[in-house]
């Protein structure tokens, strides 16, 4: 398990072949741009199969942050990792829907455990398919 901490950077933890990042604070635009770069690099380096983004501490997700989350998951997909956004609060979910954002293509789970389950199911399904082939 490795991580690095820097001011105004969001730490990325590695658990098995999963990367976990917990967004604890109000996201400033600059931070999320840095995060995008950091994460892409980490996925490539670690060959991670899954990315879990825990947003349970976020009480506002506007269209910009929503778009960034969708971007991150699209980038991860190209790097062959699946992204799961976990822990979105009810008020945030309602607001995003009212805002007109459905975060298409982004997968979601209730908490980190469920998100991990989802990623494991994916990787084992893939392994199963490879085995059959």
């Amino acid at each position: 398990m490795t991580h690095y901490l820097e001011p105004s950077r969001i730490p990325i933890f590695q658990i098995g072949d999963c990367l976990l990042l917990t967004i604890q604070v109000d996201l400033e635009d600059r931070m999320i741009m840095t995060l995008k770069d950091d994460l892409a690099e980490r996925i490539a380096k670690s060959h991670a199969k899954g990315v879990l983004i825990d947003i349970s501490a976020l009480d506002v997700v506007d269209s910009f942050i929503g778009r960034m989350l969708a971007n991150i998951s699209a980038i991860a997909r190209i790097l062959d990792a699946s992204t799961v956004i976990v822990g979105m609060r009810p008020a945030v979910a309602i607001t995003l829907v009212e805002l007109g954002m459905s975060l298409q293509g982004v997968r979601t789970a209730l908490d980190v455990d469920r998100g991990m389950e989802l990623i494991r199911r994916d990787t084992s399904e893939e392994a199963g398919r490879l085995h059959e082939a």
Binding site: I85, M88, A93, I94, V97, S102, T108, A109
Partner: peptide
């Protein structure tokens, strides 16, 4: 519909 969409964002 809105409820369903919001639930989906939360992972349900």
């Amino acid at each position: 519909l809105k409820t369903a969409a919001a639930a989906k964002l939360m992972g349900a």
